[in-house]
Design a protein around this nucleic acid. Structure first.
Lengths: 341, 341
DNA sequence: GCATTTTGTGAAAACGTTTTATCGAGCGTG
DNA sequence: CACGCTCGATAAAACGTTTTCACAAAATGC
């Protein structure tokens, strides 16, 4: 197909219709296969499409159908291993159901998160998977709910919002990790976590519960930044140089734990002999770092799958009640923890 | 805005027009600000928009304007650290220019890559950033070029396609990494790389060039899989258990190098005393692993920025000639390499 | 003060689909 | 043979915008 200037032009349903000598309605029908059309016309249309290399215009379809088969995916920081794995799981599951994901890395900046929500709404997404960063997320969620767009929250709840959620046993996970260290005889346990925007408080509460049950003072350090290596390194460097240094550190994210390992090495402390370290998440790296990291595993892939599954169910049946699925964490013991000497 | 059933309905430009007692053309004009409209009407329209909470429908705009302000981003495996960082850079730069990225993780599956290209075309993206996985990518690129959609290839070239590219000095990087090991006196150097789909051959060529100049036999192991920890671990485990074990391993991706470190530890070999390891990429993890990894750094963030910059230039000026920008790698010496004993 | 340009506004066409309403042909039924 | 039915196909409306065109009013030039 060429315009008179010789530029290629993309064929429309109209072109197919005239090529096949049928009406555009007929073309549309063989395209969607929802109504009967006689065999000979069908083959004529198919042949015409093939000759012209026709591809339907999803934008036009979206406008007419009022559905785009796209879902917004709001995630704090795509470059962190945990989130990139989660994004991968979501993308893959959506793809399998012929939905596309609009991936938005909010970077925990309220402005960016807000802008992205706006964008998703104007973009007419059919649904939204939302991993909020708490501050400022509530009004965003409000706007989504007002538009009656199906939404599933990941690892977060908001009072007063009756929406679908995929949660994990953060409290139990925190509890289990701390218990593990307590069971090994540690009594001076430090906890490092990222800003509470990107970290569910329950995780921390679980830790504190376990510690208080064992009558151990909680030494918690909440860093005002994301869960990256640097964060863990800086926090640990400071903690490990105090006069009474901890014999164990519970990092509430694997990335932080890796930073801790690094700091320990820098200070010539051996893990796990001089220091036990427990992480959280079980990112794929955790098994490969030295020493391999004992960690509280999240079923990252399952979380992504569950989120999509819940969403699809809601899309099929818009009047269904919101659904909450809870997945369990599991302590994976590797070689970064040992009994306290 | 409510329908008679009480369901909320999203306000359109029409609603705004009747609310403000003007024509829809006027509303459109204050929306786009491209033509003059008298101050009092403007304020009336703005007020009406505000009252109704109007948000333009990007799908309708896309159909009418024949431009969607979205660009497709095709990337092999979003969950690998290198690619997730690259995706982050791209996403961030696009966002700053008010474009959205449709992130597609092709997983190096020809079928999925093809399906995603199809999807992007039907989705009417304005441009495409393409990190191909070689096999089967050529016909995909062909289809993109036929549609005259601006495209920029990352780290790849295809003979016969005159399209924009962002390249890095892969050959030089490979050469430099090998030179570093040679300079340290190593003569038994093994090389591990992922499948050549996801790895530019030039990188390997650079290594081989340096080795042959130094009259050292090349011992190359090409794994038929992606660049993950497991890959490096398995390859190294095998190589390091041979009778004549190498004194240095050049892993052509950091993720692989991390697997190598793990294998070395498993075999009780100390790095760098018993084995020197060089990586490639300089993912953020590289500095935090133990020992910190000597690696050939790619300017990952700059690559993403450059790709977007080139693309935007091409969108502004569709008749501009394709552009190629080449960025340099740089050897970063840390503590995983030492003189051969 | 008339002809001409400029300015602001609205009506309507267009973008590429899907879907509703319509219509004509074939066909058994009374 | 008129009648109602079904079936297959088409014409046309609709989705929410932008933009072209037309037009009146106001501003400008002689």
């Amino acid at each position: 197909m060429l315009t008179q200037e010789g530029r290629p032009t993309i064929p429309t349903i109209k072109d197919v219709a005239s090529e096949a000598q049928v009406s555009i309605a007929t073309v549309s029908r063989v395209l969607n296969g929802n109504r009967r059309v006689s065999p000979d016309l069908r083959t004529r249309v198919l042949a015409a499409m093939d000759r012209l290399g026709y591809q339907p215009n999803a934008i036009a379809q979206g406008l007419r159908r009022n559905a785009t088969r796209s879902v917004g995916v709001l995630i704090p920081r795509i470059h962190e291993p945990f989130f990139s794995t989660l994004a991968f799981a979501i993308e893959r599951t959506l793809f399998a159901s012929d939905y596309r994901g609009l991936l938005c890395s909010t970077e925990e900046q309220p402005g960016k998160e807000r802008a992205y929500v706006d964008m998703l709404l104007t973009q007419q997404v059919d649904a939204i998977i939302y991993f909020p960063s708490i501050t400022g997320s509530q009004p965003n969620l409000q706007r989504i709910v007002e538009r009656e767009i199906p939404v599933v929250l990941i690892e977060r709840s908001f009072a007063g919002f009756d929406v679908s959620r995929v949660l994990i046993s953060n409290f139990q996970g925190g509890y289990d990790g701390a218990q593990h260290l307590i069971g090994l005889g540690h009594t001076h346990i430090s906890v490092i976590c990222a800003n509470l925007e990107s970290m569910p408080v329950e995780r921390l509460s679980g830790v504190q519960q376990a510690l208080s049950e064992a009558r151990i003072d909680a030494d918690v350090r909440i860093m005002n930044r994301g869960s990256d290596f640097e964060t863990g390194y800086e926090a640990a460097l400071e903690m490990l140089q105090r006069p009474a240094r901890p014999t164990a550190i519970f990092a509430l994210a694997d990335s932080i734990a890796v930073g801790v390992l690094h700091a320990a090495a820098y200070l010539d402390l051996r893990v796990p002999d001089d220091l036990s370290v427990v992480g959280f998440d079980n990112i794929s790296l955790a098994a490969y770092v030295l020493p391999p990291l004992t960690t509280v595993a999240q079923p990252i892939y399952a979380i992504g799958e569950a989120a999509v599954r819940v969403l699809l169910r809601q899309l099929q049946n818009p009047d269904a009640a919101p659904e909450t699925v809870t997945l369990n964490t599991e302590l994976v013991v590797r070689q970064s923890t040992a009994p306290c000497r």
